[in-house]
Design a protein around this nucleic acid. Structure first.
Lengths: 129, 129
DNA sequence: TATAGTGTATATGTACCATATACACAGTGT
DNA sequence: ACACTGTGTATATGGTACATATACACTATA
């Protein structure tokens, strides 16, 4: 499993793991029912302790994205593609809402905001799905 | 100075102070040269210690938004309105860029992103400046 | 020059992050 | 049955960032 950790980041290691596995599941790169690496295997790969990988899996399980069974291992939860799509959209919406609110406080208007988004989409080369 | 702290927030107190004063300066609510409350006064108002308010002022000074002189007090730095506008826009742009990148990873396209932004702008009632 | 205001520095407690190590559960080969 | 090797779990320990109280130093002014 390709996961890259940045030890000098202010983001805790376990959270970096959570975010990257979360993205793989939401994207469909990891299919429902598919086994995840064991906490030991992952800890070994990432040069961290089992506590850190366990902590990450706990967060993902609390969110309902994975399911862990003692002695057996950890698996991607059975979630319908429609639900994944909803989670993806809700997430983006929440983050955009934060920006819109802060923009209001800073006196940045709707038109300006839209044009900045267009500019960034262009610069990043984001395509239509 | 109206500042609201949330003790149950995961965001450190000093950072909450930084963000709110920062917003007031960027918005022009606090004018260049204008004195800020003393760290003692602010600490007293917010029911925190002077260390916390000092920490907040340190961050703001490091960013160049305020200037503190021992024995005298702390003042909003002399920054041109054009520079403030640039800081405001850069900030929003950086945050939108993060979202665009994450959207690309999750397979969310440009059109979808634009429509979500429109929806949120509508819901939040963001006007043109 | 005493005083009341300002910012500064040092030592202490608490909470979260990350670790090592010892424990308990589930399947598999003998 | 039983040992073994894999899985996840629980406990005790150390480091670091946040927040504090308290004592110190600087600046203006009566």
């Amino acid at each position: 499993m390709l996961i890259v950790l940045d030890n000098s980041s202010p983001v805790p290691l376990y959270k970096q793991i959570v975010e990257q596995i979360r993205a793989k599941i939401l994207k469909g790169e990891l299919q429902p029912g598919e086994p995840l690496p064991s906490i030991r295997q992952l800890a070994s790969d990432l040069l961290t302790s089992v506590i850190t990988t366990k902590r990450a899996y706990q967060e993902l399980e609390a969110e309902g994205l994975i399911q862990t069974r003692p002695g057996l291992g950890t698996f991607v939860a059975e979630i319908k593609e429609a639900s994944l799509e909803e989670i993806r959209l809700k997430e983006v919406e929440a983050r955009l809402r934060d920006i819109v609110r802060d923009s209001a406080r800073l006196g940045i208007g709707a038109t300006t905001l839209r044009s900045i988004l267009d500019k960034v989409i262009e610069a990043e080369g984001l395509m239509d799905e």
